[in-house]
């Protein structure tokens, strides 16, 4: 069985976010990059299934410039078998989805795994778009994942309960919280064996831009905290209604 796992190259969550060029571009200086946390959980679960005996070949992929290879290398050190990098800056979800769909078509993959959203632009669209390009099933925000024979068993949180889904192959699944408990930490042997694992570089299929960035805004600074005495409920309600306008 072959899995294609999308690996996001995203800023560490403790990064200070700044913009340059009149707030139209993200300032990448001094940013530490990490594997997207949802993709990391997704990959960890697949590696656990592999460790438990599932015959699974895992290819990790991303759309990114050369510097993203360090992130792919981490995924290989965690235990993925090989990697594909589409040599282009990822413009938007449509562009990325198109490239991943193209990779999928070029080999006999059984399913695609993505994170439920990237933690930088948070669009949460890539999994659905890949499935649409390929005309296959898509299940998003999955919190539990298993494979038994020719079926994948999935579970996800819905309002007031859980939804249990089973799907035949192929499909696209996006991993959410709970997919694995803790992400796997690459060990030194994994890091060493990642040296000789192959990263194939492919050129992108250029498509017409579907979106363009007008401007980025950082959230307004948090206002000072107002303290209201526990017995003054009326004042609390008044402030929430008149000032915060949330009730």
């Amino acid at each position: 069985m072959k899995a294609l796992v999308c690996i996001g190259h995203v800023p560490d969550t403790t990064s200070k976010i700044k913009f340059v060029n009149n707030n139209t571009e993200f300032d990448t200086s001094d940013i530490q990059y990490i594997v997207g946390p949802y993709e990391e959980l997704g990959l960890t679960r697949l590696l656990d299934l592999k460790t438990a005996g599932l015959d699974l070949h895992i290819t990790v992929a991303n759309v990114g410039v050369q510097e993203t290879e360090a992130t792919l290398r981490k995924a290989l050190a965690m235990g993925a078998d090989d990697a594909v990098r589409v040599n282009a800056a990822p413009k938007d979800a449509l562009f990325v989805s198109k490239q991943i769909a193209n990779i999928f078509k070029q080999a006999d993959y059984d399913f695609v795994l993505t994170g439920k959203e990237s933690i930088d632009y948070n669009s949460g669209e890539v999994d659905g778009m890949i499935a649409e390009f390929l005309g296959i099933t898509s299940v998003s925000g999955v919190s539990k994942f298993d494979i038994a024979g020719n079926t994948a068993q999935m579970e996800r949180e819905i309002d007031g309960g859980k939804e249990i889904i089973s799907s035949g192959f192929p499909f696209v699944v996006s991993a959410g919280k709970g997919f694995a408990i803790e992400p796997r930490i690459p060990n030194m042997r994994g890091i060493m064996s990642a040296r000789t694992k192959k990263i194939t570089i492919v050129e992108p299929e250029n498509i017409e831009d579907a979106t363009s960035t007008v401007k980025f805004h950082t959230p307004p600074p948090r206002p000072a905290c107002k303290k209201i005495a526990p017995d003054n409920v009326e004042e609390l309600v008044r402030l929430l209604h008149e000032e915060a306008k949330v009730i």
Binding site: E69, A70, R73, K74, A77, I185, P186, N187, M188, I191, R195
Partner: peptide, 13 residues
């Protein structure tokens, strides 16, 4: 890159 990955992995552990 490998040094950074080693450092980060041990830090995470």
């Amino acid at each position: 890159d490998e040094h950074v990955l080693i450092r980060n992995s041990v830090r995470e552990w």
